[in-house]
């Protein structure tokens, strides 16, 4: 179980020592075996919250507990060893490192080829040849992103946090990925998944949705409760007038100018 108690995260803006509050006195509990989706507008503090849980950022104040243990000041490595995993929104690339090696590091042991192929299949990379490719710029953005997710699958943490796993992934691979998340969740073996996402199909899988706005939990609830409010069902997000463009016929466009 993960408990965030009164978390505040502030950064200096650089102007006259002014500070900006990214996370504002946020408290949240994520139970074991739960599939939680954190959603909300850009700049609302979602990625920051994920980084605070992994230890990549340190809160200005507040407390983070994992299975009852205070991990607020614990370094990233120790949190990883306790069973917290984090899938980066923008994954790092490594010159010279093979995909197989990265998966081995993630798993903490040498993995059999078959197991590696299964992890890759689960993220829609259906070719064993990926294992010997280097995790460098020769891979596309979508490929690196899926390999990033595969490293978390190989690591199999108790609490996995994915920061916008769908970003940069094509529709077909996204289908496969959604199935993978559903499978992990349905296994219900004590593992928790936290996904930061804007994707309706991922949100629908959630046990609980957390709507984050201005660094605060604006609302929480089940998909049934929150989906209509999120605007997906009504498709009326922000009432943008351009969502229904005027149909123009060529004959209506003046040609005299």
């Amino acid at each position: 179980m993960l408990e965030l108690r009164n978390i505040v995260f502030e950064v200096p803006t650089g102007k006259d020592g002014e500070i900006k509050r990214i996370i504002d006195d946020l408290s949240l509990t994520i139970e074991d075996d739960r599939f939680t989706v954190i959603t909300g507008p850009n700049g609302g503090g979602k990625s920051t919250l994920a980084k605070l849980i992994m230890g990549i950022e340190q809160p200005t104040s507040g407390q983070i507990l994992f299975n009852g243990q205070d991990i607020t000041n614990m370094p990233i490595t120790e949190r990883a060893q306790l069973g917290i995993g984090y899938g980066f929104q923008q994954p790092a690339r490594f010159k010279g490192m093979k995909v197989k090696k990265l998966l081995d590091i993630a798993a903490g042991r040498k993995l059999p080829m078959l197991a590696c192929n299964e992890y890759l299949q689960k993220v829609g990379l259906c070719s064993a040849s990926y294992l010997t490719r280097e995790v460098d710029k020769s891979l596309s953005g979508g490929e690196v992103k899926r390999i990033e997710i595969a490293t978390i699958l190989a690591r199999d943490p108790k609490l996995a946090i994915y920061d916008e796993p769908e970003a940069g992934i094509d529709l077909w691979s996204f289908d496969r990925l959604t199935e993978t998340f559903r499978d992990i969740h349905e296994a219900r073996d004590g593992r928790s998944i936290v996904i930061i996402s804007h994707q309706e199909r991922i949100i629908q899988l959630a046990d609980e949705i957390v709507l984050l706005r201005n660094g605060k939990v604006a609302e929480t609830g089940t998909p049934a409760d929150l989906m209509p409010k999120l605007g997906f069902a009504a498709k009326g997000i922000g009432d943008c007038p351009f969502t229904q463009p005027t149909v123009l016929h060529l004959t209506e466009i003046p040609t005299t100018c």
Partner: peptide
């Protein structure tokens, strides 16, 4: 970001640095 990624996989920053250099060479 390379060191941070490897730390999230359980390596210390020294181990991460060593791993990155070994693979690079």
């Amino acid at each position: 970001d390379q060191i941070t990624k490897l730390m999230t996989l359980g390596l210390t920053s020294e181990e991460a640095e060593q791993e990155i250099l070994e693979d690079f060479l």
